[in-house]
Nucleic acid binder design. Structure first.
Length: 1051
RNA sequence: GGGCGUAUAGCUCAGCUUGGUUAGAGCGCUUCCCUGAUAAGGAAGAGGUCCGAGGUUCAAGUCCUCGUACGCCCA
């Protein structure tokens, strides 16, 4: 792409008023027409690479505003790095598989669980899942495009593509060969509605607070020393598991005591007597060590199901605690991981009366066919009716639910495939130690803790729409297993060409093979895998590695990533699966820097949700405020790590304070530079050192800004970058432009050059954050007048701060001038003397007067409309009162404990003498309890104020005093200013262009007439009058307060 | 129950790393001013137990301990 050859060396007009959403649509068209994104990827072959991985959104449902958040961060840094000269590939990706998609399709089709799906047909069901994903991808693409997120959506990776599936198979077979993919019978959280176990990170997303019955049940002892005369008291919050009660566990180290209320005797762990039993119970004095109670038998609470072998006795288990309950823990191995381990050790049977759909087997008395949770009530009532219920309470706790369908989970014993992540736990911890987390607390906090407590990854899912587990098992000898890594390998095993096979269920299920010399047929195990494994495989699977042609080269130059970014809920999701898969397969984590965002909340501080009606959708938000405003909010408003509230107020404030202020400054520049026909190449530009102090200041601030913004973005700190940019824009508009307006009106080359250079750099600094408005400004203000400029700001280079233009101390001096100006304005307001009325002089404290220097004093005079700015001290010592107080910051270092006394001594001293001594000798002496203490200028803050007859404002050590005395000269000058103002208003209301010349005719009496006669030249200059004549018959404008009538005619 | 985070004006948030005199900004509100780029800008005002309690220190919004509330995560 090159600059348009026909470019005339002149600015394009920039309208003062702008409709940002319309502007953005035009820019989108421009980018599309010019192929700007593609051009930004067309870097030199030797450009360093900066690798970014797109975490694939699950394409179920429509995109929400929270999706914009991460996508802003995924866009800002690649744009920033691209401008710095890096090659930053951005391949879009879509997470296509998994339960969320299945659930959505089930709903659409009105299906109610696995049996319905199988009746409907797996082939057709999966086809519907594929359709649903494609449909939602369209909506995400629209939003992605609109917000200006540059990511290559023309060639995305999709986890359902055959090449992707084959890559995942390859990874699994690699893990299998390392002996880390194993099958085990384990108790796992299981959703009976979805018919699948949930992985630990899925489990983490579904805790909900619910109220369960908390039951204390009598278990009468039937052997041992207490047989027939006491009951164990057992506590559980899952009465439904009592049906399959198998044993009672006690801690061998605990002491268990007998307590009685006079009618019965109960056995409870000693520390829990009061908590479990309450009032009215006394200890009998009998006590047993837990280890001595082993194998005491008891009467089980329900006799509803048969047991195949001996059970129902006391077992020992170290995990029993004394925190809750009674210290006697009911065991049901099919429904508890700990229970399973303990009962296996005692060779107890695993009895499970509950079907895979979460309902009791139909032939179980009392609760047959009931949903497990529903059975709680029936069972509790039955226990009560048989006198076994000691106590029942409502127990509120958080209990895991299915993160998608909200069904309460069962812990349920099932055969499952596991990735033995615990075998690489140390490597994971090492890799994490080398990863930069933003914010840093996640690294050793939330994420580090998670790794430290790592458990094996439960990989298999008994579902349909997912990557099929690539394991074939011999039906004659189930110990014989083949884990394949590609369709090619499968073709070789079957002797059929399967290269075009859809690797999904049910097609893959039909592939079987035999092995020469072995009995039996190999059939695939029916499971699919956790979709998190899919997304965690994207660093290589996005290229079809290692099968696809060219994938090795692509992978090797893009692993690991320098940068990934998602919201904090991915800590145990993608952040984990990405690191785990990388470490398992390549022994190296797949990312170096990870930015972890807080959640976006609605304006009311709550999560956006349909039923609260507080949802703000991204497309309408961008249509109203513009994508730049939304991007700025996401990147720069508040801390990205913290949860943040979004609303219309915040967005329109960004538009007004940041975007429009920036826009208006460019419009201002183009208006006057255009009027003068000025461009950067139209003539000699004075070197910076020869320009006015304000020019030097603006450029000094600009290069400081460049340095600061660069540093901030290198640290992924968009908030700091945004704060610096916003304050610079404010300074530029409300001090530099405001103070320099006259120079622009008069066509001052140095002013044009300064503001043009500033807008050039500023626009590039803004480009990653607000790519639309920055592009518009580039197109209108930079491109047309800059030979060889890149055709887009996004193809331009990132500015590098020119340290030689950063003037040490100048910023502080200008700040002082602004502060003095503020004080002067306050003094005027207090004295009710409007700014238009010139005053003879203003006085400031001598220190400030010296620091400002002549040039800034002139600025202050102009801004305050005073004749001169003088030092209070020079105005006459007698007029000035001094006051002095200690500077604690300095004194504290010198005097420590004596600081208050020294400060008091300074305050008590004669301030005038102190100031005189400091001014003359640079040091002074104060009296501290009779002994002299020497203090320097840094130890004392001296302020000055005049004694009387002045309008004085004093703040933070600075003082400004206005001389309010008016003489005729000042009065006439004030009236002339009034006249100028009303004529300017007349010009404006007559619709004259700012450069139109006029003739002015006027009538007035008395002082106003005198003022007009005296200041004719000034007025002519200000209002661009070619002639001013006295006397007008039919005035077009009259100001009664001023006694002035006049006509304005275009010359 | 455990871990982490947060708590500053009516609202949204800076400031806390490195303790210092009278704690800031924007929005909103009241009054006034300015306007030849601005949907802007300026001045004044109302509005603060810097969550609470202890502690360290000459000095605490800032450091330490404990607690409270809220959020997230884990159990």
């Amino acid at each position: 792409m090159t600059s348009p050859p026909s470019a005339r060396a002149t600015y394009r007009p920039v309208p003062a008023h702008v409709d940002l959403p319309v502007l953005e649509r035009e820019i989108l068209d421009l980018w599309a027409d010019q192929g700007t994104f593609a051009a930004s990827l067309d870097t030199p072959a030797d450009a360093p690479r900066w690798t970014f991985y797109e975490g694939p959104p699950t394409a179920n449902g429509t995109p929400g505003t929270h999706h914009v958040e991460a996508r802003v961060f995924k866009d800002v840094f690649p744009r920033f790095k691209t401008m710095q000269g890096y090659h930053v590939d951005r391949k879009a990706g879509w997470d296509c598989h998994g339960l969320p998609v299945e659930i959505a399709v089930e709903k659409e089709l009105g299906l109610g669980g696995k049996p319905d799906i199988e009746a409907y047909g797996i082939a057709e069901f999966n086809a519907r899942c594929r359709e649903a994903v494609v449909r939602n991808v369209d909506l995400f693409e629209e939003m992605t495009d609109r917000m200006g997120y540059w990511v290559d959506m023309s060639d995305p990776y999709r986890t359902m593509e055959p090449s992707y599936v084959e890559s995942v198979w390859w990874a699994l077979s690699t893990i299998y060969k390392k002996g880390l993919l194993t099958q085990d019978f384990r108790v796992a959280p299981y959703c009976p509605r979805c018919g699948t176990t949930l992985s630990d990170h899925e489990l983490a997303q579904g805790y909900e607070t619910i109220t369960d019955p908390s039951v204390y049940v009598r278990f009468p002892l039937t052997s041992g020393p207490l047989a027939g005369r006491a009951s164990m008291l057992v506590w559980t919050t899952t009465p439904w598991t009592l049906v399959s009660n198998t044993a009672v566990a006690v801690n061998p180290e605990f002491t268990y005591v007998l307590a009685t209320d006079g009618t019965e005797t109960l056995l409870v762990a000693e520390p829990l007597v009061a908590k479990a039993l309450g009032e009215g119970w006394t200890l009998t004095g009998e006590a047993f060590a837990g280890r001595d109670m082993e194998r005491w038998t008891y009467q089980r609470p329900f006799e509803l199901i048969p047991f195949p072998s001996e059970a129902h006795f006391v077992v020992l288990a170290d995990y029993v605690t004394a925190e809750d309950g009674t210290g006697l823990v009911h065991q049901s191995p099919a429904f508890g991981a700990d229970d399973m381990i303990v009962c296996k050790a005692y060779d107890l049977p695993v009895v499970n009366p509950i079907r895979a759909d979460g309902h009791f087997e139909d032939d179980v008395p009392l609760v047959g066919g009931q949903f497990f949770k529903t059975a709680d009530r029936v069972l509790a009532d039955d226990l009560a009716s048989r006198g076994l219920m000691f106590n029942e309470l409502a127990y509120e706790h958080s209990y895991p639910h299915c993160w998608r369908c909200h069904t309460p989970l069962m812990y349920y014993a099932l055969p499952a495939w596991y990735v033995r992540t615990t075998a690489v736990k140390d490597r994971l911890l090492e890799e994490n130690a080398g990863t930069n987390w933003f914010p840093e607390t996640i690294k050793n906090g939330r994420y580090g803790d998670w790794l430290t407590n790592n458990i094996d990854w439960s990989l298999s899912r008994s579902r349909y729409w997912g990557t099929p587990l690539p394991i074939w098992r011999n039906d004659a000898d189930p110990s014989k297993i083949v884990c394949i890594e590609s369709l090619a390998e499968l073709s070789a095993l079957t002797g059929r060409d399967l290269s075009d096979l859809d690797p999904h269920r049910p097609y893959i299920d039909e592939v079987t093979f035999e092995v020469d010399g072995e009995a039996g047929t190999y059939r695939r195990v029916p499971d699919v895998i956790d979709a998190w494994f899919d997304s965690g495989s994207m660093p290589f699977a996005q290229w079809g590695y290692p099968h696809a042609e060219g994938s090795k080269e692509k992978f090797e130059q893009a692993y690991p990533a320098q940068y990934i970014c998602e919201a904090i809920d991915q800590t145990r999701g993608w952040f984990y699966s990405l690191m785990a898969v990388g470490t398992l397969v390549f022994d190296q984590s797949s990312y170096e820097n990870v930015v972890c965002l807080g959640h976006i909340l609605a304006e009311d501080g709550k999560k956006m949700s349909k039923h609260l009606g507080n949802i703000l959708l991204p497309m309408p938000l961008m249509d109203e405020h513009g994508a730049d405003a939304l991007r700025w909010f996401m990147a720069c408003s508040g801390s990205p790590w913290a949860p943040r509230r979004i609303g219309h107020t915040a967005l329109s404030e960004i538009v007004r304070k940041v975007l429009l202020t920036y826009w208006n400054t460019t419009a201002f520049h183009v208006l006057y530079a255009g009027t003068e026909g000025w461009t950067p190449t139209s003539g000699e530009v004075p070197p910076v050192a020869e320009r006015e102090v304000l020019d030097q200041w603006l450029l000094s601030e600009l290069h400081t800004l460049t340095r600061d913004v660069t540093v901030a973005l290198e640290k992924f700190d968009t908030q700091a970058a945004g704060a610096r940019l916003a304050s610079f824009i404010d300074d530029m508009s409300n001090w530099y432009v405001r103070r320099s307006r006259r120079r622009f009106w008069r066509g001052d080359t140095a002013a044009f050059a300064t503001l043009h250079e500033t807008l050039d750099v500023l626009t590039r600094l803004m480009a990653p954050l607000t790519p639309f408005i920055a592009e518009r400004v580039w197109q209108d203000v930079i491109l047309p007048v800059t030979p060889d400029a890149p055709a887009s700001v996004h193809l331009a280079s990132w500015p590098v701060a020119d340290e030689s233009l950063i003037v040490e101390g100048l910023g502080a001096r200008v700040d002082l001038a602004r502060r003095v100006t503020e004080l002067g304005r306050a003094a005027r307001a207090e004295a009710k003397v409007r700014t238009r009325q010139p005053l003879r002089r203003a006085l400031v404290a001598s220190g400030a007067w010296q620091q400002l220097g002549a040039d800034l004093r002139a600025q202050v005079c102009e801004e305050l409309n005073v004749g001169s700015l003088e030092s209070l001290a020079d105005a006459g010592g007698d007029l000035v009162d001094h006051s002095a107080k200690g500077n604690f910051r300095n004194l504290g270092k010198r005097f420590g404990k004596e600081t208050p006394q020294v400060a008091a001594a300074i305050a008590a001293a004669d301030a005038g003498a102190l100031a005189a001594s400091l001014a003359a000798a640079g040091t002074a002496t104060v009296d501290l309890d009779g002994s002299p203490v020497e203090v320097g200028p840094d130890d004392v803050i001296v302020s000055e104020r005049p004694r009387e007859g002045w309008s004085v404002v004093n703040d933070q050590g600075e003082t400004v005093a206005l001389d309010l005395e008016l003489d005729d000269e000042l009065r006439l000058a004030g009236l002339a200013r009034e006249a100028i103002r009303v004529v300017q208003e007349a010009r404006k209301s007559s619709g004259l262009d700012i450069s139109d010349r006029i003739t002015l005719a006027w009538s007035a009496d008395g002082p106003m007439a005198e003022a007009l006669r005296t200041h004719t030249a000034l007025i002519a200059d200000e209002v661009l009058a070619t002639s001013i004549t006295e006397g007008v018959d039919v005035p077009a404008f009259t100001d009664a307060d001023l006694g002035l009538s006049f006509t304005v005619t275009k010359a």
